[in-house]
């Protein structure tokens, strides 16, 4: 089994042979197949992929938020505990306190009838038995840190009084209030304009300064955002991990043909679209799932699926071009 393992760094989360199936009206759909990953302490990893690549589902699987019709097999090991096997009371202790989640839908993720300060502080009351007063003041400290000013006023207010950017910051504040060790952010920049994106980047940098050993998993399709923050990049395509790479080497010399084409489709690189249609997980192509769109495809790509090949300590790629 090939996966990144570096003895010098402490592994915080490792995913082994993960497979997620959905039972739908049309039958069984495998949305994630054979994912093997390691996340290290203190690093920021960007999980990149287009919609339908399974990146959001991977995030939901880690925090166990999948709907009932999902069938998960494999292991997700966090500090020696398999997250897929624990019961709900233990899971509750891990969620929020150990692993925090920033949801995608900013608008609907805050309770409109509860004060902002309470929504940020409640996780502290729940997990650390804080008194209300102390939770409230920690909430205000967090708001101040993220420059949601005037913090006292905002904490007393309700979500509808905030702008979209402020709501986003409140959500991040409530996610990191309990000082988790792993933060999973689902598309934190989706639909935001350039200036707001810069703001979110700065907030993530601040979080990192606050707690340097925090690991962050950014689920995003915004390559610019990933470039600003990530240490490593993981690329998913059609439910499979196809490349794991260092940030710098990914943006300068991507390994997988898909990554190469993806970078070329950025506005700054001339907006060259990837030929063909994105593969559908419900009906994936044979062999390498990218072969119908790949300019380097050969016979073997059509017939068998390439394994994740380890090139060196930090770089892996699932492509037959690298099997020599």
């Amino acid at each position: 089994m090939s996966h990144v393992s570096d003895t010098s760094k402490e592994v915080i989360l490792s995913i082994r042979d993960l497979k997620v199936k959905f039972y739908t009206e049309e039958g069984e759909v495998t949305v994630i197949s054979d994912v093997n990953l390691d996340l290290f302490k203190g690093e920021t990893v960007a999980l990149i992929g287009e919609s339908g690549s399974g990146k959001s589902i991977l995030g939901h699987t880690i925090i166990r938020l999948l709907p009932k019709n999902a069938n998960v097999s494999g292991h997700i090991i966090y500090k020696g505990i398999d997250l897929l096997k624990i019961d709900s009371s233990l899971l509750r202790n891990i969620r929020g306190r150990e692993i925090a989640w920033i949801p995608q839908m900013v608008g609907s993720s805050l309770n409109p009838t509860v004060k902002i300060g309470v929504q940020i502080g409640e996780v502290l009351i729940d997990h650390y038995n804080y008194r209300n007063q102390r939770a409230w003041s920690s909430a205000i400290d967090l708001l101040k840190l993220f420059e949601v000013e005037p913090a006292e006023e905002v904490a007393k207010g309700y979500p509808h009084q905030l702008s979209g950017g402020m709501k986003q910051r409140v959500l991040i504040a409530s996610a990191i209030a309990a000082r988790p060790n792993l933060l999973i952010a689902d598309e934190p920049t989706k639909g935001l304009d350039t200036i707001k994106k810069t703001l979110i980047v700065n907030i993530f940098k601040k979080i990192k300064d606050l707690k340097p050993d925090l690991s962050i998993l950014l689920i995003t399709h915004d390559l610019k955002f990933a470039r600003e923050l990530a240490d490593r990049v993981i690329v998913m395509y059609c439910g499979k991990v196809i490349e794991i790479n260092d940030k710098n080497s990914f943006f300068e010399l991507p390994l997988h043909p898909y990554s190469k084409l993806l970078l070329k489709s950025l506005p700054s690189k001339g907006l060259y679209p990837i030929p063909g249609k994105p593969a559908n997980v419900a009906n994936p192509p044979s062999g390498c799932r990218f072969h119908p769109r790949c300019p380097y495809a050969s016979d073997i790509c059509e017939k068998s699926s390439p394994p994740l090949i380890k090139l060196d300590l930090n770089r892996c790629v699932a492509c037959w071009l690298y099997k020599r």
Partner: peptide, 30 residues
């Protein structure tokens, strides 16, 4: 998605040039 975006933008551009349409394009990305 990024690759779809490139596709759609090129399509719009082609159509604009082919059909001589006046286009007002609104985008926050300069």
């Amino acid at each position: 998605d990024i690759s779809t975006q490139a596709d759609i933008l090129r399509l719009l551009k082609n159509i604009r040039d082919k059909l001589n349409i006046s286009l007002l394009f609104i985008s926050h990305d300069i």
